[in-house]
């Protein structure tokens, strides 16, 4: 198995169906761009993860500005609020559960999301929620943007050093911003 598919925790290995590794940041950007209703899920580790924008919360705010709906899990919404930005808020477990319901019309009631993008979650919790989605929301496409491979997503960034990840994240955002 390639180094890119090395999981963030040793024992959280892939099952028979595993995430495709995103070969280039622009592929991730194009997946998001092509989606009609993308949703970005930002986990509670986000303020601890430094990025070129400040931290992952700041980067998530950039995503929001490109038109991607953003939901904060845990109690992370407070950090967004403290920075003057309103995003959706839902516990990670509830969110996973709702996403398995094809009739759930999303936070705005406009219809189901067609791609769900994950950043900033506890590695093992993201692993688990995506495992639930892999089996119980088979039509939903999921994309993990962590710097460690998440095998249960539909697509995941490969494991990479932090500095490469920062560049990749920036490239994805630039692509989305250009589109706008």
């Amino acid at each position: 198995m390639s180094a890119k598919m090395r999981t963030g925790q040793t024992a959280e290995i892939p099952g028979p169906k595993k995430a495709h590794v995103i070969p280039q940041p622009k592929v991730a950007a194009s997946l998001i761009k092509k989606a009609k209703r993308p949703l970005l899920v930002v986990g509670s580790n986000a303020p601890k993860l430094k990025t070129n924008d400040g931290d992952l919360v700041d980067s998530a705010i950039r995503f929001l500005k490109t038109g991607v709906a953003v939901v904060a899990t845990g109690h992370l919404v407070k950090t967004f609020r403290d920075r003057g930005t309103e995003v959706y808020s839902m516990p990670f477990m509830n969110l996973g559960d709702r996403l398995t319901d094809p009739d759930w019309a999303g936070f705005d009631g406009e219809g189901p999301y067609d791609i769900v993008v994950f950043v900033g979650s506890l590695y093992y919790m993201e692993w688990l929620v995506q495992s639930g989605l892999k089996s119980f929301a088979q039509d939903l496409r999921t994309l993990s943007l962590s710097n460690t491979y998440q095998p249960n997503a539909s697509w995941s960034m490969g494991s990479m050093p932090v500095k490469n990840w920062l560049t990749a994240l920036d490239e994805i955002l630039k692509e989305l911003e250009e589109e706008k």
């Binding site: 477990m93 996973g96 688990l128 495992s131 089996s135």
Partner: peptide
């Protein structure tokens, strides 16, 4: 209270 399953193993 419906179960939301998160398989720890696919097998």
């Amino acid at each position: 209270y419906k179960p939301f399953y998160m398989p720890l193993c696919d097998l």
